[in-house]
Design a binder for these strands. Structure first.
Lengths: 126, 126, 126, 126
DNA sequence: GTGGTCTAGACCACC
DNA sequence: GTGGTCTAGACCACG
């Protein structure tokens, strides 16, 4: 479920964890109600400091993707708290612009990019 | 050509500048041979410290997108130094995965995403 | 481990530091995994500005010799990132040509040069 | 006789020219008494500013390798002015240390390095 | 005029 | 405590 984090990477460890959960939710690998490992367990699994995982869970909770219940653990929200529509559109647009830039610099035509997207979409359990 | 930077943003100023140049090159707003403003001038234009712009130019040079010649200035490379193919593929794949995740979380279907990409591609002078 | 830098020298301070680390790694004085002093500490030790040491560390990281982890410090890489073979050969060839030129201008015969190399090789903890 | 200079290189153009002359003298391609092109001609040949070549010639004269006679041109000195023996030894030692470091980092054994040196020595008209 | 280096200090993010 | 970023200014080297 979780893949190793890269300590030397530019994106901080706690955000790598946030991203993994976001992707898991998007791909339905983490369905609503799914119980995440305790931050201590996940810390042991990923060989990072518990505080680092805690910070990731805190951010996920702030984003409305997970819910932490004292004494029980953290769970994927049944109904993810809807973020501001503006923010959603902004995130999407930024990711799209970014992909377009990378594709152009790499000399990859747009239909190749769309093909790549469809392949990724198919390969992931969506 | 250059749009204002956001000092408080999560992504550091120097990298915002890097991204603007990368996008400019990708969209051909900055054609090969194009002379960038001196780092001092751009610093004045964006109201940041000269060193901040210089750091951005340093990174662009390390990426092989621009060439800096002492006493002359910085220029978009005629033939961008080809980065390792692995890295290119990795950058593309990461950007694609990211877009896919954002789209899924936003509940936007894949064809809507492709439509968005095509619109962005058409609107930019490519 | 570190020897004083020369502020007035033609080769910039940050590069003198880069060279010291490169030589340390080559001579195995800095084995893989070895932790370098924090850039602040080394700056204090060498009596230079912290940013100067940081710039040296940045370049070493770009060269793939060290790895920097936020909050932890900088370490000699276990497996130094292999640079492009072309670049390696170029570095070697340039250094060899340079030595040959200096030797000829000094009127030192080739076997004397080779003897000097072997002495240096023996004296260093390699 | 002269090979193109690289404007984008880290080592300044005027020093690239200095090095070319030093190597030429060391390899006897430029024998004593040999007339160098006028700094204007060489500037045209290398496509650089005359001032840049002038600066190179100035440094070569300061090093005692060439002699400039008003109205006649610049010539390789018959008897190169002997620099301080200390400086010579220092230049040699530095070049040797540098080569040793590069070889170790490249994983090239010492006898391979000596072989490379002998090949370079043989290939150059010495 | 242009880039290259360096300083002394500040504030923030991360672990 | 560690690295990451930024500032405002200085001085030098290069073309």
């Amino acid at each position: 479920m979780f893949t190793p984090v890269q300590p030397g990477d530019e994106v901080p460890i706690y955000r790598q964890i946030v991203n993994q959960v976001r992707e898991g939710v998007a791909a339905s690998s983490f369905p609503p109600g799914h119980k995440l490992p305790s931050h201590r367990d996940l810390a042991a699994l990923l060989a990072v400091a518990p505080l680092t995982v805690k910070k990731a869970y805190d951010e996920l909770e702030a984003q409305g993707l997970i819910e932490t219940r004292r004494g029980l653990g953290s769970f994927i929200r049944e109904t993810p708290a809807a973020p501001a529509p503006d923010e959603v559109r902004e995130r999407l647009a930024r990711a799209a612009r970014r992909l377009l830039t990378e594709a152009r610099l790499a000399g990859v035509p747009l239909d190749r990019v769309e093909q790549l997207l469809r392949e990724l979409d198919a390969s992931d359990p969506s």
